[in-house]
Design a protein around this nucleic acid. Structure first.
Lengths: 343, 343
DNA sequence: TTGTATGCGTTATCAC
DNA sequence: GTGATAACGCATACAA
């Protein structure tokens, strides 16, 4: 049944030359090949629909051409866009984009790393924020070590507490900027909806929020910090809590757009007017943030572009261009209607 | 610099046995190995943090463990959910999920297939609908042939005009069901927003829409069929056209939820009340459909579950369980508030 | 300009 | 119960 695979040998036979010569043609080798034979080889390749077995090539060259991408949730626009950007760049250059969803589970993330290690991935992108968990960190240290010994490049998006190249997005800075804006608009009673616990990105974003408050001589009130999980539903739940304290709050800063969108939805649903009764702002500038009621004021983090930049960086590094520097992305304040100026 | 990879030989040396024995331990081979040596091997493996090189294993076994997933756009909730479901099942079983975004471009899809072929993928999932393009079909026929010769399993989600296993979702049936409902609610002047041209899924969905109309003795009016592209913005544009003919339309059936959501947004924006002035329904039941204004009446296609079913099916087939039957998913009408009953 | 021999890491076959 | 050997498909060092 199983038709035998077409190999370089079959091509050689048809082109009446040696497998070595075929290999040279395939790889545009420096080694000279006569025009005549090259043409015969090309013809044979076409005739047989031959493509070299990348698995075998990989074994030889000690490269798998696999780029592992570990995300928390591919259904989250943030990650979907990043992956799209990475894929756009990477598969155009014959690499395999191998994705894993971890749902922020330590076990799943470790599982992904084990598979990627076994597959001798050329690079691994930790697309999500670092998990804050002692056991995880310990195991990861060892894992990163092994990976580096087998020449796997590991890249962290946002800071990770390992000895890897971390891409800094300025999450803390972004929160500071938007909170500054909220304050500039006259708000002083400002609630915050947090990100998931045990996620370093949450910590960073909250840090930026607090920094802005302190800078502006506003006391940080822990009663005005609400739980969230970066999700729409998390935002909805938080909104319900916020409503209970509605008289002591004029604005809500959410740890991300999904949360802000969920909060606004619930606020609307409970007949609280945004921004008339309460302002809401987010971070990320997801595509859908433009179409909420009201349109969301937020910080743009150009995630898709981040993805292509990651791809470009990886490609250069993987090809020994050690001097290539990562192209940083720029955040930008997007003013829409969910933030109201107070008199 | 480059630390040498740890191989089965290193383990053998440390465990004082032959590579063959190590291999037997790794693979829980039937061949007997004494408990004593087995333990020594296990210990060595742990000590060296060894994991067998899957690339080399793949070369030997003629299996790459790569599952290619070709989607139109990973940022589209529909595909994101499907990929998540597939990944959930597949990487739990040590397979690599290798995704490609094609933006419905013939070239990109062909490119993906070429890479997947070169990488000797064990299976390829055509997650999006078939492209209706003569050249594409021609090239694909040959490609599918080559793929089958090298034992790659190709799976089409929705019908594809190739000799592959196609999973039928009942796109036409779904449109028929929801249009029936719209008619049951007293509507007879019904507009339709189409999907992308040259996509077989668009054709199928429109077919279901028309079938319902005809069944109910309503003439199909081509002036009431508007262009769309399955996207939110496509829905917005269509809505603008629909508004021009608002007096001859009481309901809009959209080819998918994204389109319906975009249309509703624009309608709201232009101060047209949904569903009081006009009803809108969609297909897919995306997560966000629950949170629109008003919540969208639609057909649920359990995409995530479809993904896990695909994973399960593939796993069985790849392990020679040829009798395993694909578990079909069930569509379901979801009544919310965007459809109004006419007197 | 061409070809032969060897090895990448693993496993199946066969011998012991 | 154990191990030497060949082979998977390819690319390189070396020889001619």
């Amino acid at each position: 049944m199983a038709n035998k695979e077409i190999t370089i040998k079959d091509v050689a036979k048809l082109a009446e030359c040696s497998p070595t010569t075929v290999s040279r043609v395939i790889n545009n080798s420096d080694h000279p090949v006569s025009k005549e034979t090259a043409e015969k080889v090309e013809a044979a390749i076409k005739k047989l629909n031959f493509s070299p077995n990348r698995i075998a090539q990989g074994l030889k060259s000690d490269r798998s051409n696999i780029i592992g991408v570990i995300v928390h949730d591919i259904c989250d626009s943030y990650f979907a866009q990043m992956v799209k950007g990475i894929e756009e760049f990477i598969s155009g250059h014959e690499y395999i984009v191998n994705i894993y969803n971890t749902s922020r589970s330590v076990e799943k993330e470790l599982h992904a790393f084990n598979l990627l290690k076994a597959n001798r991935a050329d690079a691994i992108i930790l697309a999500g924020g670092a998990l804050m968990d002692k056991k995880y960190e310990q195991k990861m240290h060892s894992m990163i070590n092994q990976l580096q010994n087998q020449n796997t490049l590991v890249l962290g998006i946002t800071p990770h507490p390992f000895d890897i190249k971390n891409i800094i997005l300025g999450n803390d800075r972004a929160l500071e900027v938007i909170t500054d804006k909220v304050i500039e608009y006259g708000h002083r009673k400002i609630a915050y909806i947090d990100g998931p616990e045990k996620l370093y990105t949450s910590y960073l974003r909250k840090k930026g929020f607090k920094k802005s408050l302190e800078k502006n001589d506003i006391a940080v009130d822990d009663n005005l910090i609400f739980k969230g999980d970066f999700s729409f539903n998390g935002g909805r739940k938080a909104a319900l809590e916020i409503i209970k304290k509605i008289n002591s709050i004029t604005a809500v800063v959410a740890a991300n757009d999904s949360t802000a969108l969920g909060a606004m939805w619930e606020l609307n649903h409970q007949a609280i007017k945004v921004p008339d009764q309460i302002s809401v702002v987010g971070i990320d500038n997801l595509p859908e943030a433009k179409y909420s009621y009201p349109p969301l004021t937020t910080i743009e983090i150009p995630i898709y572009q981040l993805g292509t930049n990651i791809g470009e960086y990886l490609l250069n590094r993987l090809n020994e261009n050690c001097n290539y520097q990562f192209k940083d992305i720029k955040i930008k304040l997007i003013m829409r209607n969910s933030l109201k100026r107070l008199k």
